[in-house]
């Protein structure tokens, strides 16, 4: 993304559809995602979280605003930087911490980690590491709903890197041909591991591809949670009306490395500074303070509570053992 030095940070564009209670709720989920992220980074440094720890800092508005726009029957196929969506869909901290730290009681029995789990009751189906793979799966999920006459919307995510996979193309084309109630959020966070957009694609916007599929496409500011919410709410409405899928490209920045081992030294300092000023939480916080929806005291109290809850979940999880070894030899097939 080309940076304009004089670029002013635009004010949050308020959605006409949101109540102040909903705004507070979204802000709380964004803060929760950020604090969860910071906690995972610390656990990684302490050697208590093993495997990849994939920061979602910078992604809170995209993740929370999109999931928040879905209804109570809709399903979410979150990706590795969508921890906010897990919270929006009602996932509790203990469940997440057990999954992330692979402790006994994890929904995945220790067979896999991070947000790769599925929780059918909460309508969350995690991704696999092969990005793009869940696009046709999420589309097929609502193909089934549609066949039964149910009005369910599915949403999944991809990045500026994963958008270059074959399954992205096959999945979006299939969803468009079948006019499925499906929303794909392309989180363009500027870097696919270390590769900038210029290495990944030549079109102006990734959402331009919608034209080729015959579905709706738009590119929006991915650091303004209300813009994200509005675009996704409209996409869900179109989906319910039978108008088919939407591609929504949310433009934001991955503020840390691909995973915690990566020092992201390939990102120019001025680029980080540019995006630092557009931090989705700072932007929304300023908006909520300006509109007197929350006071600084409210926010401090909210943050304190969230940190305490996360610490409690860590304390709960780290005390538990890893799953017994024999779990690894079970469950390759279901009965």
């Amino acid at each position: 993304m080309k940076l304009k030095k004089s670029d002013k940070i635009p004010p949050i564009k308020p959605s006409k559809r949101l109540t102040n209670d909903q705004r507070i709720s979204m802000f709380r989920f964004m803060l929760q995602a950020r604090e969860f992220d910071l906690a995972m980074q610390r656990l990684n440094r302490q050697g208590r979280a093993f495997g990849g720890v994939y920061s979602q800092t910078g992604n809170e508005a995209s993740s929370v605003g999109s999931a928040f726009a879905l209804g109570e029957k809709d399903v979410l196929f979150p990706m590795h930087r969508n921890i906010g969506g897990h919270f929006v869909f009602g996932q509790d901290l203990n469940t997440l911490m057990l999954a992330f730290l692979a402790r006994e009681g994890s929904l995945m029995r220790g067979t896999d980690g991070t947000g790769h789990y599925a929780d059918v009751n909460k309508r969350i189906y995690g991704n696999i590491s092969h990005l793009g793979a869940m696009i046709p799966v999420a589309a097929g999920f609502v193909l089934a709903s549609k066949m039964r006459g149910e009005n369910v919307v599915s949403m999944t995510y991809i990045g500026d890197g994963g958008s270059q996979t074959g399954e992205f193309h096959e999945g979006m084309n299939f969803a468009s041909v079948q006019k499925l109630p499906f929303i794909l959020i392309i989180e363009n966070n500027q870097y696919a591991y270390s590769s900038p957009n210029s290495v990944e694609f030549a079109c102006k916007h990734l959402s331009d591809r919608a034209l080729g599929y015959g579905c709706h496409g738009e590119t929006i500011d991915g650091t303004d949670v209300e813009i994200v919410y509005d675009a996704c709410w409209k996409a869900a409405e179109r989906a319910r009306r039978g108008e088919g899928p939407s591609i929504i490209e949310t433009v934001t920045m991955r503020m840390r490395g691909h995973a915690e081992h990566d020092d992201f030294s390939y990102v120019p300092r001025e680029e980080l500074e540019y995006w630092q000023k557009r931090d989705p939480i700072d932007r929304y916080q300023n908006f909520l303070l300006e509109k007197k929806i929350l006071t600084m005291d409210d926010i401090t109290a909210m943050r304190t509570t969230l940190i305490e809850e996360i610490r409690a979940a860590i304390d709960y999880a780290v005390e538990l053992p890893f799953p017994p070894a024999e779990e690894g030899l079970k469950g390759v097939f279901v009965d």
């Binding site: 046709p136 799966v137 193909l143 999945g171 299939f174």
Partner: peptide, 16 residues
């Protein structure tokens, strides 16, 4: 689109 056919079949299978 074999990947989409199989992928969508998996999604449908996960949904009953």
């Amino acid at each position: 689109s074999e990947a989409a056919i199989v992928g969508a079949a998996i999604g449908a299978a996960l949904n009953g």
